[in-house]
Design a protein around this nucleic acid. Structure first.
Lengths: 194, 194
DNA sequence: GTTTGTGAATAGTTTCACAGCA
DNA sequence: TGCTGTGAAACTATTCACAAAC
Protein backbone atom coordinates (compact mmCIF):
# COMPACT_ATOMS: atom_id res chain seq x y z
CA UNK A 1 0.00 0.00 0.00
CA UNK A 2 2.76 2.56 0.65
CA UNK A 3 3.85 1.99 -2.91
CA UNK A 4 0.35 2.80 -4.18
CA UNK A 5 0.24 5.92 -2.02
CA UNK A 6 3.51 7.13 -3.49
CA UNK A 7 2.25 6.45 -7.00
CA UNK A 8 -1.04 8.22 -6.34
CA UNK A 9 0.72 11.30 -5.00
CA UNK A 10 3.15 11.33 -7.88
CA UNK A 11 0.40 11.08 -10.50
CA UNK A 12 -1.71 13.72 -8.76
CA UNK A 13 1.19 16.14 -8.93
CA UNK A 14 1.32 15.49 -12.67
CA UNK A 15 -2.30 16.63 -12.96
CA UNK A 16 -3.94 13.22 -13.37
CA UNK A 17 -7.34 13.01 -11.63
CA UNK A 18 -8.72 9.56 -12.47
CA UNK A 19 -6.80 6.46 -13.41
CA UNK A 20 -7.75 2.89 -14.27
CA UNK A 21 -6.12 -0.13 -12.72
CA UNK A 22 -4.51 -0.65 -16.11
CA UNK A 23 -3.01 2.84 -16.17
CA UNK A 24 -1.81 2.64 -12.59
CA UNK A 25 -0.34 -0.79 -13.20
CA UNK A 26 1.61 0.48 -16.19
CA UNK A 27 2.88 3.42 -14.16
CA UNK A 28 4.03 1.21 -11.30
CA UNK A 29 5.33 -1.68 -13.41
CA UNK A 30 2.66 -4.11 -12.22
CA UNK A 31 -0.35 -5.97 -13.57
CA UNK A 32 -3.90 -4.52 -13.30
CA UNK A 33 -5.54 -7.43 -11.48
CA UNK A 34 -2.93 -7.30 -8.75
CA UNK A 35 -3.90 -3.70 -8.00
CA UNK A 36 -7.64 -4.43 -8.07
CA UNK A 37 -7.16 -7.40 -5.75
CA UNK A 38 -5.06 -5.39 -3.30
CA UNK A 39 -7.54 -2.54 -3.19
CA UNK A 40 -10.57 -4.81 -2.91
CA UNK A 41 -9.09 -6.23 0.27
CA UNK A 42 -9.57 -2.87 1.98
CA UNK A 43 -12.83 -1.87 0.33
CA UNK A 44 -14.33 -0.60 -2.92
CA UNK A 45 -12.22 2.37 -3.95
CA UNK A 46 -13.03 2.55 -7.66
CA UNK A 47 -15.97 3.17 -9.98
CA UNK A 48 -16.63 0.69 -12.82
CA UNK A 49 -16.19 2.36 -16.19
CA UNK A 50 -14.22 5.23 -14.65
CA UNK A 51 -11.37 3.88 -12.53
CA UNK A 52 -9.94 5.32 -9.35
CA UNK A 53 -10.08 8.97 -8.30
CA UNK A 54 -6.53 9.68 -7.15
CA UNK A 55 -7.46 12.10 -4.39
CA UNK A 56 -9.99 9.78 -2.76
CA UNK A 57 -7.58 6.88 -3.29
CA UNK A 58 -4.86 8.83 -1.52
CA UNK A 59 -7.24 9.57 1.32
CA UNK A 60 -8.26 5.94 1.67
CA UNK A 61 -4.67 4.68 1.75
CA UNK A 62 -3.59 7.38 4.19
CA UNK A 63 -6.37 6.29 6.54
CA UNK A 64 -5.47 2.63 6.18
CA UNK A 65 -1.78 3.31 6.86
CA UNK A 66 -2.67 5.72 9.68
CA UNK A 67 -0.94 8.49 7.78
CA UNK A 68 -3.96 10.78 8.04
CA UNK A 69 -2.28 12.53 10.93
CA UNK A 70 1.29 13.66 11.63
CA UNK A 71 3.83 11.44 13.34
CA UNK A 72 6.79 12.61 15.35
CA UNK A 73 9.96 10.55 15.14
CA UNK A 74 12.91 10.20 17.51
CA UNK A 75 16.34 9.78 15.92
CA UNK A 76 19.14 8.09 17.85
CA UNK A 77 22.62 8.51 16.39
CA UNK A 78 23.57 11.77 14.73
CA UNK A 79 26.51 10.58 12.65
CA UNK A 80 26.77 10.87 8.90
CA UNK A 81 23.58 8.93 8.31
CA UNK A 82 21.72 10.63 11.15
CA UNK A 83 22.56 14.08 9.78
CA UNK A 84 21.43 13.03 6.33
CA UNK A 85 18.11 11.87 7.78
CA UNK A 86 17.65 15.15 9.67
CA UNK A 87 18.21 17.08 6.45
CA UNK A 88 16.08 14.78 4.30
CA UNK A 89 13.04 16.65 2.94
CA UNK A 90 11.11 13.55 1.83
CA UNK A 91 9.47 12.67 5.15
CA UNK A 92 6.99 15.55 5.17
CA UNK A 93 4.77 14.24 2.40
CA UNK A 94 3.89 11.29 4.64
CA UNK A 95 3.37 13.56 7.65
CA UNK A 96 6.54 12.29 9.29
CA UNK A 97 8.91 14.57 11.14
CA UNK A 98 12.02 13.99 13.20
CA UNK A 99 11.41 16.10 16.27
CA UNK A 100 13.98 14.68 18.65
CA UNK A 101 17.59 13.62 18.12
CA UNK A 102 19.94 11.90 20.53
CA UNK A 103 23.62 11.04 20.56
CA UNK A 104 26.15 9.81 23.05
CA UNK A 105 28.95 12.04 21.73
CA UNK A 106 29.35 15.22 23.80
CA UNK A 107 30.66 17.07 20.75
CA UNK A 108 27.31 16.64 19.03
CA UNK A 109 25.08 17.22 22.03
CA UNK A 110 23.48 20.70 22.06
CA UNK A 111 24.25 21.29 18.39
CA UNK A 112 21.22 22.16 16.29
CA UNK A 113 21.10 20.25 13.00
CA UNK A 114 18.40 20.97 10.44
CA UNK A 115 16.42 22.69 13.16
CA UNK A 116 16.58 19.84 15.66
CA UNK A 117 18.65 20.14 18.81
CA UNK A 118 20.75 17.09 19.60
CA UNK A 119 20.29 15.83 23.14
CA UNK A 120 22.19 13.46 25.43
CA UNK A 121 21.14 9.86 24.81
CA UNK A 122 20.88 9.37 28.55
CA UNK A 123 17.96 11.81 28.61
CA UNK A 124 15.89 9.85 26.10
CA UNK A 125 13.29 9.01 28.75
CA UNK A 126 11.96 12.55 28.26
CA UNK A 127 10.32 11.63 24.96
CA UNK A 128 7.70 9.66 26.85
CA UNK A 129 6.05 13.00 27.57
CA UNK A 130 6.50 14.38 24.06
CA UNK A 131 4.00 12.36 22.04
CA UNK A 132 6.52 10.58 19.83
CA UNK A 133 5.64 7.09 18.65
CA UNK A 134 8.34 6.17 16.11
CA UNK A 135 12.09 5.78 16.41
CA UNK A 136 15.08 5.55 14.08
CA UNK A 137 18.27 3.73 15.06
CA UNK A 138 21.28 5.17 13.23
CA UNK A 139 24.09 4.06 15.51
CA UNK A 140 27.01 1.63 15.04
CA UNK A 141 25.96 -1.99 15.30
CA UNK A 142 27.44 -2.47 18.75
CA UNK A 143 24.98 -0.02 20.27
CA UNK A 144 21.88 -1.03 18.30
CA UNK A 145 20.32 -3.39 20.85
CA UNK A 146 20.87 -1.01 23.74
CA UNK A 147 19.20 1.80 21.79
CA UNK A 148 16.33 -0.46 20.79
CA UNK A 149 15.74 -1.40 24.43
CA UNK A 150 15.74 2.26 25.41
CA UNK A 151 13.25 3.19 22.69
CA UNK A 152 10.92 0.40 23.74
CA UNK A 153 11.23 1.56 27.35
CA UNK A 154 10.07 4.99 26.20
CA UNK A 155 6.91 3.52 24.71
CA UNK A 156 8.03 3.56 21.08
CA UNK A 157 6.21 0.81 19.19
CA UNK A 158 7.67 1.30 15.70
CA UNK A 159 11.41 1.29 14.97
CA UNK A 160 13.41 1.75 11.80
CA UNK A 161 16.79 0.10 12.26
CA UNK A 162 19.64 1.23 10.01
CA UNK A 163 22.29 -0.71 11.89
CA UNK A 164 23.61 -3.95 10.49
CA UNK A 165 22.74 -5.82 13.67
CA UNK A 166 19.43 -7.58 14.11
CA UNK A 167 17.63 -6.22 17.16
CA UNK A 168 15.23 -8.17 19.32
CA UNK A 169 12.15 -6.44 20.61
CA UNK A 170 8.88 -7.44 22.28
CA UNK A 171 6.27 -8.92 19.99
CA UNK A 172 4.14 -5.79 20.06
CA UNK A 173 6.92 -3.62 18.60
CA UNK A 174 7.32 -3.46 14.82
CA UNK A 175 10.81 -3.16 13.36
CA UNK A 176 11.71 -2.25 9.81
CA UNK A 177 15.36 -3.06 9.19
CA UNK A 178 17.42 -1.46 6.46
CA UNK A 179 20.95 -2.77 6.11
CA UNK A 180 22.34 -0.68 3.29
CA UNK A 181 25.48 -2.74 2.77
CA UNK A 182 23.57 -6.02 2.77
CA UNK A 183 21.05 -4.61 0.30
CA UNK A 184 23.82 -3.42 -2.02
CA UNK A 185 25.42 -6.86 -1.69
CA UNK A 186 22.33 -8.39 -3.33
CA UNK A 187 23.16 -6.77 -6.65
CA UNK A 188 26.24 -8.73 -7.83
CA UNK A 189 24.12 -11.91 -7.91
CA UNK A 190 22.03 -10.41 -10.71
CA UNK A 191 24.76 -8.80 -12.81
CA UNK A 192 26.07 -11.14 -15.49
CA UNK A 193 29.79 -10.51 -16.07
CA UNK A 194 30.71 -10.49 -12.39
CA UNK B 1 20.76 -15.51 1.22
CA UNK B 2 22.38 -12.15 2.09
CA UNK B 3 20.66 -12.43 5.43
CA UNK B 4 22.26 -15.84 6.04
CA UNK B 5 25.65 -14.47 5.02
CA UNK B 6 25.33 -11.66 7.52
CA UNK B 7 24.32 -14.11 10.22
CA UNK B 8 27.18 -16.47 9.41
CA UNK B 9 29.75 -13.66 9.58
CA UNK B 10 28.28 -12.36 12.81
CA UNK B 11 28.33 -15.79 14.48
CA UNK B 12 31.86 -16.50 13.23
CA UNK B 13 33.08 -13.29 14.85
CA UNK B 14 31.56 -14.55 18.11
CA UNK B 15 33.73 -17.67 17.88
CA UNK B 16 31.05 -20.15 16.80
CA UNK B 17 32.38 -22.76 14.34
CA UNK B 18 29.49 -25.14 13.69
CA UNK B 19 25.79 -24.45 14.02
CA UNK B 20 22.65 -26.48 13.47
CA UNK B 21 19.70 -25.24 11.45
CA UNK B 22 17.91 -24.96 14.76
CA UNK B 23 20.60 -22.75 16.29
CA UNK B 24 20.85 -20.54 13.21
CA UNK B 25 17.08 -20.24 13.03
CA UNK B 26 16.92 -19.13 16.62
CA UNK B 27 19.66 -16.58 16.00
CA UNK B 28 17.92 -15.15 12.95
CA UNK B 29 14.38 -15.34 14.25
CA UNK B 30 13.31 -18.01 11.78
CA UNK B 31 12.27 -21.66 11.72
CA UNK B 32 14.80 -24.46 11.11
CA UNK B 33 13.12 -26.09 8.09
CA UNK B 34 13.03 -22.80 6.25
CA UNK B 35 16.80 -22.56 6.50
CA UNK B 36 17.34 -26.19 5.45
CA UNK B 37 15.01 -25.73 2.48
CA UNK B 38 16.73 -22.55 1.36
CA UNK B 39 20.19 -24.08 1.61
CA UNK B 40 19.17 -27.32 -0.10
CA UNK B 41 18.12 -25.29 -3.13
CA UNK B 42 21.75 -24.36 -3.72
CA UNK B 43 23.37 -27.62 -2.66
CA UNK B 44 24.24 -29.71 0.38
CA UNK B 45 26.04 -27.39 2.76
CA UNK B 46 25.59 -29.26 6.01
CA UNK B 47 26.60 -32.53 7.67
CA UNK B 48 23.91 -34.66 9.32
CA UNK B 49 24.49 -34.93 13.06
CA UNK B 50 26.82 -31.92 13.02
CA UNK B 51 25.14 -29.00 11.32
CA UNK B 52 26.74 -26.30 9.19
CA UNK B 53 30.36 -25.21 9.34
CA UNK B 54 30.12 -21.43 9.35
CA UNK B 55 33.28 -20.79 7.39
CA UNK B 56 32.37 -23.14 4.54
CA UNK B 57 28.81 -21.84 4.66
CA UNK B 58 30.11 -18.29 4.30
CA UNK B 59 32.25 -19.37 1.36
CA UNK B 60 29.34 -21.10 -0.35
CA UNK B 61 27.02 -18.09 0.03
CA UNK B 62 29.72 -15.65 -1.10
CA UNK B 63 30.19 -17.71 -4.26
CA UNK B 64 26.44 -17.90 -4.90
CA UNK B 65 26.00 -14.16 -4.43
CA UNK B 66 29.18 -13.46 -6.45
CA UNK B 67 30.69 -11.80 -3.41
CA UNK B 68 33.87 -13.90 -3.63
CA UNK B 69 35.56 -11.00 -5.34
CA UNK B 70 35.58 -7.23 -4.81
CA UNK B 71 33.11 -4.92 -6.48
CA UNK B 72 33.66 -1.27 -7.28
CA UNK B 73 30.69 1.04 -7.01
CA UNK B 74 29.94 4.41 -8.60
CA UNK B 75 28.05 6.93 -6.50
CA UNK B 76 26.03 9.69 -8.13
CA UNK B 77 24.90 12.52 -5.88
CA UNK B 78 27.19 13.67 -3.07
CA UNK B 79 24.64 15.41 -0.87
CA UNK B 80 23.94 14.53 2.72
CA UNK B 81 23.10 10.93 1.91
CA UNK B 82 25.94 10.55 -0.61
CA UNK B 83 28.47 11.74 1.94
CA UNK B 84 27.07 9.35 4.52
CA UNK B 85 27.47 6.48 2.06
CA UNK B 86 31.06 7.49 1.26
CA UNK B 87 31.87 7.46 4.96
CA UNK B 88 29.98 4.25 5.71
CA UNK B 89 32.37 1.51 6.85
CA UNK B 90 29.93 -1.38 6.44
CA UNK B 91 30.45 -2.06 2.74
CA UNK B 92 33.90 -3.60 3.05
CA UNK B 93 32.80 -6.85 4.67
CA UNK B 94 30.94 -7.69 1.47
CA UNK B 95 33.87 -6.63 -0.72
CA UNK B 96 32.03 -3.52 -1.88
CA UNK B 97 33.78 -0.18 -2.30
CA UNK B 98 32.68 3.17 -3.65
CA UNK B 99 35.55 4.13 -5.95
CA UNK B 100 33.94 6.88 -7.99
CA UNK B 101 31.65 9.75 -7.00
CA UNK B 102 29.85 12.25 -9.21
CA UNK B 103 27.86 15.40 -8.65
CA UNK B 104 26.45 18.20 -10.74
CA UNK B 105 27.27 20.89 -8.16
CA UNK B 106 30.52 22.72 -8.98
CA UNK B 107 31.06 23.40 -5.28
CA UNK B 108 31.38 19.69 -4.61
CA UNK B 109 33.36 18.75 -7.69
CA UNK B 110 37.08 18.16 -6.99
CA UNK B 111 36.50 17.84 -3.27
CA UNK B 112 37.82 14.63 -1.77
CA UNK B 113 35.37 13.00 0.62
CA UNK B 114 36.32 9.89 2.58
CA UNK B 115 39.17 9.37 0.15
CA UNK B 116 37.10 9.59 -3.01
CA UNK B 117 37.42 12.58 -5.33
CA UNK B 118 34.10 13.99 -6.53
CA UNK B 119 33.95 14.39 -10.31
CA UNK B 120 31.67 16.25 -12.70
CA UNK B 121 28.59 14.20 -13.51
CA UNK B 122 29.08 15.01 -17.18
CA UNK B 123 32.32 12.99 -17.14
CA UNK B 124 30.62 9.81 -15.91
CA UNK B 125 31.34 8.05 -19.20
CA UNK B 126 34.90 7.56 -17.94
CA UNK B 127 33.82 4.77 -15.60
CA UNK B 128 33.30 2.48 -18.57
CA UNK B 129 37.09 2.04 -18.56
CA UNK B 130 37.39 1.69 -14.79
CA UNK B 131 35.91 -1.73 -14.16
CA UNK B 132 32.92 -0.60 -12.11
CA UNK B 133 29.76 -2.65 -12.33
CA UNK B 134 27.44 -1.23 -9.67
CA UNK B 135 25.91 2.19 -9.19
CA UNK B 136 24.16 4.14 -6.44
CA UNK B 137 21.67 6.92 -7.16
CA UNK B 138 21.56 9.44 -4.32
CA UNK B 139 20.16 12.48 -6.13
CA UNK B 140 16.85 14.37 -5.79
CA UNK B 141 13.93 12.60 -7.44
CA UNK B 142 13.82 14.92 -10.40
CA UNK B 143 17.22 13.76 -11.59
CA UNK B 144 16.88 10.05 -10.84
CA UNK B 145 15.82 8.85 -14.29
CA UNK B 146 18.50 10.87 -16.05
CA UNK B 147 21.16 9.41 -13.76
CA UNK B 148 19.81 5.91 -14.24
CA UNK B 149 19.99 6.28 -18.00
CA UNK B 150 23.58 7.53 -17.74
CA UNK B 151 24.62 4.62 -15.53
CA UNK B 152 23.07 2.11 -17.91
CA UNK B 153 24.88 3.83 -20.79
CA UNK B 154 28.12 3.27 -18.91
CA UNK B 155 27.50 -0.46 -18.77
CA UNK B 156 26.30 -0.58 -15.15
CA UNK B 157 23.95 -3.54 -14.70
CA UNK B 158 23.11 -3.18 -11.01
CA UNK B 159 21.70 -0.02 -9.46
CA UNK B 160 20.72 0.94 -5.95
CA UNK B 161 18.18 3.75 -6.10
CA UNK B 162 17.75 5.93 -3.01
CA UNK B 163 15.54 8.46 -4.73
CA UNK B 164 11.80 8.43 -4.17
CA UNK B 165 11.13 8.16 -7.89
CA UNK B 166 10.73 4.83 -9.61
CA UNK B 167 13.26 4.50 -12.41
CA UNK B 168 12.78 2.50 -15.58
CA UNK B 169 15.70 0.53 -16.94
CA UNK B 170 16.25 -2.19 -19.55
CA UNK B 171 15.22 -5.67 -18.50
CA UNK B 172 18.82 -6.80 -18.08
CA UNK B 173 19.52 -4.19 -15.41
CA UNK B 174 18.67 -4.99 -11.79
CA UNK B 175 17.46 -2.19 -9.55
CA UNK B 176 17.15 -2.26 -5.78
CA UNK B 177 15.06 0.67 -4.61
CA UNK B 178 15.20 2.09 -1.11
CA UNK B 179 12.77 4.88 -0.39
CA UNK B 180 13.55 5.76 3.19
CA UNK B 181 10.51 7.97 3.74
CA UNK B 182 8.14 5.39 2.26
CA UNK B 183 9.70 2.67 4.39
CA UNK B 184 9.32 4.74 7.54
CA UNK B 185 5.74 5.45 6.51
CA UNK B 186 4.96 1.73 6.83
CA UNK B 187 5.39 1.84 10.58
CA UNK B 188 2.31 3.78 11.75
CA UNK B 189 0.09 1.02 10.34
CA UNK B 190 1.49 -1.40 12.90
CA UNK B 191 1.56 0.83 15.97
CA UNK B 192 -1.62 0.59 17.99
CA UNK B 193 -2.46 3.95 19.58
CA UNK B 194 -2.04 6.00 16.41
C1' DG C 1 -17.95 0.29 -24.48
C1' DT C 2 -15.13 0.52 -20.35
C1' DT C 3 -13.62 -0.76 -15.87
C1' DT C 4 -14.28 -2.57 -11.33
C1' DG C 5 -14.61 -6.39 -7.83
C1' DT C 6 -14.48 -11.24 -7.05
C1' DG C 7 -14.98 -16.30 -7.19
C1' DA C 8 -12.42 -20.13 -9.41
C1' DA C 9 -8.09 -21.96 -11.13
C1' DT C 10 -3.39 -21.91 -11.07
C1' DA C 11 1.13 -21.34 -9.23
C1' DG C 12 4.18 -20.79 -5.53
C1' DT C 13 5.60 -20.95 -0.78
C1' DT C 14 5.67 -22.70 3.83
C1' DT C 15 5.23 -26.41 6.96
C1' DC C 16 5.56 -31.00 8.18
C1' DA C 17 7.40 -35.67 8.79
C1' DC C 18 10.67 -38.86 8.05
C1' DA C 19 14.33 -41.53 5.51
C1' DG C 20 19.27 -41.45 5.45
C1' DC C 21 23.68 -40.27 7.16
C1' DA C 22 27.32 -38.97 10.84
C1' DT D 1 21.18 -40.28 19.18
C1' DG D 2 21.14 -35.91 16.43
C1' DC D 3 20.87 -33.48 12.40
C1' DT D 4 20.37 -32.83 7.39
C1' DG D 5 17.90 -32.98 2.96
C1' DT D 6 13.53 -33.71 0.70
C1' DG D 7 9.07 -35.43 -0.89
C1' DA D 8 4.22 -34.72 0.46
C1' DA D 9 0.60 -31.82 2.57
C1' DA D 10 -1.19 -27.49 3.85
C1' DC D 11 -1.37 -23.03 3.07
C1' DT D 12 -0.89 -18.53 0.64
C1' DA D 13 -0.55 -15.71 -3.23
C1' DT D 14 -1.08 -14.83 -8.07
C1' DT D 15 -3.57 -15.06 -12.30
C1' DC D 16 -7.58 -15.49 -14.85
C1' DA D 17 -12.31 -14.71 -16.45
C1' DC D 18 -16.57 -12.71 -16.12
C1' DA D 19 -20.81 -10.68 -13.98
C1' DA D 20 -22.23 -6.23 -12.31
C1' DA D 21 -21.77 -1.19 -12.50
C1' DC D 22 -20.86 3.18 -14.70
Amino acid sequence: MPHYLRGAMSLSKKGVVNISSHGLAEYLGMVPWQIRKDFSYFGDFGKPGVGYCLSTLEGHIRRILKLNRDHQVALVGVGNLGCALLAYPGFSKYGLKITAAFDIDQEKVDQTISGVKVRRFETIKQIEQEGLNLGIIAVPEGAAQEVADALVQCGIRGIMNFSSRQISVPRNVKVIAIDIAMDLARLPYYVPAG
